[in-house]
Design a protein around this nucleic acid. Structure first.
Lengths: 348, 348
DNA sequence: CTGAAAGCGCTTACAG
DNA sequence: CTGAAAGCGCTTACAG
């Protein structure tokens, strides 16, 4: 036995295995397995003995071996196709905060939603790596071919900010429509009645919900929105500049513009500056998302805080609770948002 | 045989295995393995037969099983502790672009560089998952305890933008000092001689290199830099505002400020705006990094393009080439940068 | 409360 | 050019 334990210490790559621990503790590998997995039905004395052996050998169960033998891979994957680094970063942070609580790990799998072989790529991936769960963000979460491929592989998944087919999987989201509604009400409260709006990317469901919230608030206030007050954007800064140019070059100008994403709002700001307009003196501008840059400009941007990290945490939580059988993972979770009032909107 | 192949089609989770393919093709699993891995010494006829069987069963080799049996995990990990979402995003994109070429996957492992048990965390991680390589970014790449832990686990690693101990591993970087030198020369060319400088985070080696490049250019031009022209920053926007406030509140003002990161440059812009200064009419400002936001403001920021994605690709390439034994992975790779001239610096 | 056996799906070494 | 055997390091089901 002394020889064995010495042998198991042999340098780099000679990591100790369950066999080494079993030998040193004088038990079977099954007992070691029970102790390492905190299973019941092990005498405390035995448990201590095994733990001591494991500690002295610096034993770490091999995740790959556990995965192959067992039914879990301890791996989650995040699928996304989104150029917004902040959004992706928030998502990753939220998921990892949760996976670390359960000793899970995160694989990132950016996917080109335009790729003709998208479904095949996903099928290949899921066939190659046994994942315990997949988290989908827009626009992937609303693509039937994506959902079909994941379901065919039998992998659990949760969708973030999905706007379609709620019955197909658990989802987490914020109330986009309500947030846009409240932001519009805020503008009205500040005395603005002639308000421009910049639409988001038509492929993202949130765009339509935000637009809808804006319209509803305007309708309820008895206000109409002329077509020249609405610009088409695609969530990007550049598209915000263009939409801003379009709206601001109309014969008359609105007193405020609600861009349905912060990057577009920054674009509208640039458009306004190019025209020599002061913000917020000549034109009020507000956004949606609360990206870090929103408060890193002057004037800081009034916006809606999208709870991206919390959404990601919640999505991972649903997957991991299902895995361990704990708790009832809500089918459709709605997380709160917050209106962040800064300096880019003035009171008329 | 017919029965077998039917059995292997049994729905979700019933993915076909190497045994199914071997049975259907009428060969041993070893031969299937040879075909799937493109090994030599298989008759073309046999190869075709196996491939046909694999295709008809939609066979995908199980990565976990390959890892456990073989010496590769097909997994790379990116370790980082950096609040800059754009930088992280670029790194991930670069690494993934390369891993996909070799059917590898990427695990992301953000680490708290301040954690007292950082080394233990890394040791645990590397003991649990057999990784084929780790990519380290600042400041982790310059922490001896981190390098020690990875080396003790016998895992290959590459460091990005490391400034210490080049002999310990392969590294990829850009010439930070030269870039700062060239930017300073550019400012001099534009007629600026009284130039302020905002230092980066002292824990990041690049900060000192950038500062050194600035000093060298000023020295060579015979210009001295009074202490009140230099502000301490930490790469963040907020620190840029503070450093800008400090520099701009001196009795006299420089005509230009070189902030050694874009976020700090944006902070200096805000500081200047708060003081009622126009950019670049009253003060020229330039940055370093070329974050997306640098061109999404007005005036767009003159800066240095840090080749983050290319660095990440190169780092992954070194790891994967070593893995497959191809090519001589250069020990120290230097990638080119570019000075991006935009509107935030004016000619005096 | 504990263990011996089988097996997860592959690759490695060896044999022919 | 091809294959039978052993084994990677665990877990699952079963036995006692």
């Amino acid at each position: 036995m002394a020889e064995d334990s010495i042998r198991s210490h042999t340098g780099v790559g000679g990591a100790s295995t369950i066999n080494d621990v079993a030998r040193l503790a004088g038990v079977s590998i099954k007992t070691v397995s029970r102790v390492m997995n905190n299973e019941p039905n092990v005498r405390q004395e035995t448990r201590d003995k095994v733990q001591a052996a494991a500690d002295s050998l610096r034993y770490r169960p091999n995740l790959l071996a556990r995965s192959l033998a067992g039914s879990r891979s301890f791996l989650l994957a995040l699928f996304y196709d989104n150029p917004n680094a902040n959004y992706i970063n928030d998502m990753q942070r939220g998921v990892i905060r949760r996976t670390r609580e359960s000793n899970y790990h995160l694989l990132i799998e950016p996917q080109d939603s335009q790729a003709p072989d998208l479904a095949q790529r996903i099928t290949n991936l899921l066939g190659t790596i046994r994942l315990d769960g997949v988290i989908l963000t827009p626009p992937l979460c609303d693509m039937p071919v994506v959902l079909d491929a994941i379901e065919a592989a039998g992998v659990p998944y949760v969708r973030v900010s999905s706007v379609t087919a709620p019955e197909r999987s658990a989802t987490v989201a914020m109330n986009e429509s309500k947030a846009a509604y409240e932001m519009t009400q805020y503008l009205l409260t500040q005395g603005h009645t002639d308000i421009g709006f910049v639409l988001g990317h038509p492929d993202h469901g949130a765009s339509h919900l935000r637009h809808e919230g804006f319209r509803r608030a305007m309708d309820e206030a008895g206000l109409t929105v002329p077509p020249e007050r609405v610009g088409q954007g695609y969530f990007s800064y550049e598209s915000g500049v263009e939409a801003g140019d379009a709206i601001l070059s109309a014969p008359t100008r609105p007193t405020a513009i609600f861009a349905s994403s912060d990057y577009m709002a920054l674009g509208v700001m640039t458009s306004a500056r190019k025209l020599g307009l002061r913000i917020p003196e000549d034109i009020s501008i507000c956004g949606f998302d609360d990206v870090p840059g929103a408060m890193r400009i002057w004037p800081a941007l009034t916006t809606i805080r999208h709870p991206a990290e919390a959404l990601a945490y919640a999505a991972a939580d649903i997957l991991l609770c299902r895995e361990t059988g704990e708790g009832a993972a809500d089918a459709q979770q709605i997380l709160p948002f917050r209106l962040i009032e800064r300096q880019s909107v003035r009171k008329l």
